[in-house]
Design a binder for these strands. Structure first.
Lengths: 111, 111
DNA sequence: TGTAAATATGATTATATATTCATATATTCA
DNA sequence: TGAATATATGAATATATAATCATATTTACA
């Protein structure tokens, strides 16, 4: 049996016995990416850090809405921030999840 | 400028001007993967085709619930089926999305 | 044709979620 | 300390969603 086959079987073993915790993590991760507003925010953060107001203005969203969504993304550790005076600059904090998003966008655009 | 840099810039260009349709497709795709029941169903289908009743029994779900979720997945063309008498055998129909799911599961399991 | 088996469907309900509005908090600086 | 700016928060509301229940539909076959 070659390496790829072994890897495939190992995955199936895992996939068919998904424990509660894994199921929760995976579903939460995808839930974070299932809302158009959050997708737009994360996509914007692909280009580097941005303040809350910058995000709101750039994407034409209310300050409150952006702040709520950033809290959501922060809780899942998908974004982080640094403070500069009264301004908070948010940026990506999870390469793996950002890769999932990038893949989905590229796939959607090219089809 | 090397090829990777070009690719990165091209992505940023796209990500910052996500049109309504792309945004809709991407969010719908992730929404499909954001529910524990659907994740379990899709994971089971990784191991090959299964009838509605097989899925319901294996995952300890009601027939109706499974049928409803399969319709959801079918509408997004993530699954397909073949008929054999009164039995419908469902199977995966979107390698790209299944890959996103596999990546997320593997990442969650190994962390 | 009539019955059984497998699946689909529609209505209902309970829960989750995104946004808005008003207001609170935190930081800077005069 | 007090005003100004940036951001966070909580309550309320409207909408979306998953599961359930009862029933309809489809197919096979005696």
């Amino acid at each position: 049996m070659n390496e790829e086959k072994k890897h495939e079987e190992a995955f199936l073993e895992v996939a068919q016995h998904l424990d509660e915790e894994t199921l929760f993590i995976v579903s939460q991760t995808f839930k974070a990416l299932s809302d158009p507003t959050r997708i737009r925010i994360l996509s914007l953060l692909c280009s580097g850090e941005h303040s809350v107001n910058e995000i709101a203005e750039t994407l034409n969203l209310s300050q409150s809405s952006v702040s709520h969504q950033l809290r959501f993304l922060k809780n899942l550790r998908l974004v982080k921030y640094r403070r500069a005076g009264t301004t908070l600059f948010y940026s990506e904090d999870d390469n793996h999840v950002m890769n999932l998003l990038k893949q989905a966008i590229e796939h959607a655009v090219h089809h």
